[in-house]
Design a protein around this nucleic acid. Structure first.
Lengths: 167, 167
DNA sequence: TTGATTGCAAAGCATTTGCATGCTA
DNA sequence: TAGCATGCAAATGCTTTGCAATCAA
C-alpha cells in the first residue's frame, strides 16, 4: 500500500466513511496517471479496468480525494474541472498553450514572495492562489500556422477535447 | 456619446452588425456599474429599465462587448462568468475574500516582469494571464465568524465544491 | 444490523442554439 | 428589402441529487 493510499484510508476512517473497491481503484488509477484529469478522463480510464463503475462515483471520489488532500482542482478555462496530484507534488502555477492545450508547470519562489507581500499590504491572509499564463508554446510557434494538434486551429479559445498535458 | 460607446459602434460597423436599442442600453448599464457583473446581474439591472429585454440578448451582448475590447471575462471560482470593464481600465489581478466575496484589484509591475521572464524561459509567448489570490480580508478576520456583508453568509459568492488545498 | 455507498435516472445550473418574428441599414 | 437581432423555448454540457438496492464495518 502506497503512502497516498494510507493517507486516503486514514481520511476515510477519520470521517467515518467506508473503504470500497471502487474508491481503491479510482485512487489507484488517479495516482498512476501523471496528468490533469477531468472527471470524465478518469472515468474512461477506470472503465477499462472495471466497466461497472459509474460516472457519479468518480465525481464523488474525486471530491473525496480533494478533501483528503491528495488531489487539487485546476481549471484551465474550458469549463471543466480537472484534478492534479496534491501529495508530494507541491504548489506550482501553469503556463497554458491556447493552441495545442499543452500545460507547463512552474514554481518561482520570487513570485510567491511578492504575492505574499501584496496580499499583506491589502490586509489579506491568503489560503491559496492560482496563476495561469495563456499563450503559445514554442512548438506551436515553430510550425507557424500549423498547430501541433489538428483540432486546435478551429477553436480560438482554450478548449481541449481531452487534457494533453506534459509535466 | 461616450468614448466607449464610440468604440462599440465602430466595432459593430466594422463587423457588419447592427446597432439596436437593446445593445445600447446594455452597454450603458454595464458602463455605469463599477462591479464584476455576471450576465444575470446585468440582466436584472437592465430589466429595471426595459423589462422586454431577454437574458439571451444580455449574454450575446456581453460577448460582443468582450470582442469589442470593452469588457473582460473574469472567473472567481463559483462557476459563473463575470465581466469587468476593459477600456481605460488596464490589466490587474485579484484578491478574493472567500468569506464575504469582496474582491480587491491590484497591479504590480514587478510581478508582471517576473512572469514575463518565466514565460520566456519556457519558450512561451503569453497573450494574457490571470492571478487570483484567495483568502480572507481584514474585515472578515476582525469580526471573526461574522462576515461583513449580510448576504454572504447565506450565499457566498465564492464557493468551492470542496476545501481549498493547502500548499 | 446499520448506516454509508453505488449507479441509474432525473434534476440543476449556466450558457448556447434553433427559429419565427421584428428591425436596422 | 436583405440580413442581422431578438426572445422564447428547447437543447447543451458538466455536475449534483434522489432513491432503491447493495455492501462494509
Amino acid at each position: 500500500m502506497t503512502e497516498e493510499q494510507e493517507v486516503f484510508h486514514r481520511h476515510i476512517q477519520r470521517a467515518g466513511l467506508k473503504r470500497t473497491a471502487q474508491r481503491d481503484l479510482i485512487l489507484e488509477v488517479f495516482l498512476r496517471t501523471e496528468e490533469h484529469l477531468s472527471s470524465e478522463d478518469l472515468y474512461r480510464l477506470v472503465q477499462k479496468e472495471d466497466p461497472e463503475i459509474g460516472q457519479t462515483t468518480v465525481y464523488r471520489t474525486l471530491k473525496l480525494l480533494t478533501d483528503a488532500g491528495l488531489a487539487r482542482e485546476v481549471r484551465f478555462g474550458d469549463g471543466r474541472t480537472r484534478y492534479e496530484h496534491n501529495y508530494k507534488h507541491p504548489h506550482h502555477d501553469h503556463l497554458i498553450c491556447t493552441s495545442c492545450g499543452k500545460t507547463i508547470e512552474f514554481y518561482s519562489e520570487q513570485l510567491e514572495t511578492i504575492q505574499d507581500a501584496i496580499a499583506s499590504k491589502h490586509g489579506f491572509e491568503t489560503t491559496h492562489h492560482t496563476l495561469r499564463m495563456f499563450g503559445s508554446c514554442s512548438d506551436c510557434r515553430d510550425s507557424s500556422g500549423t498547430p501541433k494538434k489538428e483540432e486546435s486551429a478551429a477553436e480560438p479559445r482554450v478548449r481541449f477535447a481531452s487534457a494533453p498535458s506534459t509535466h
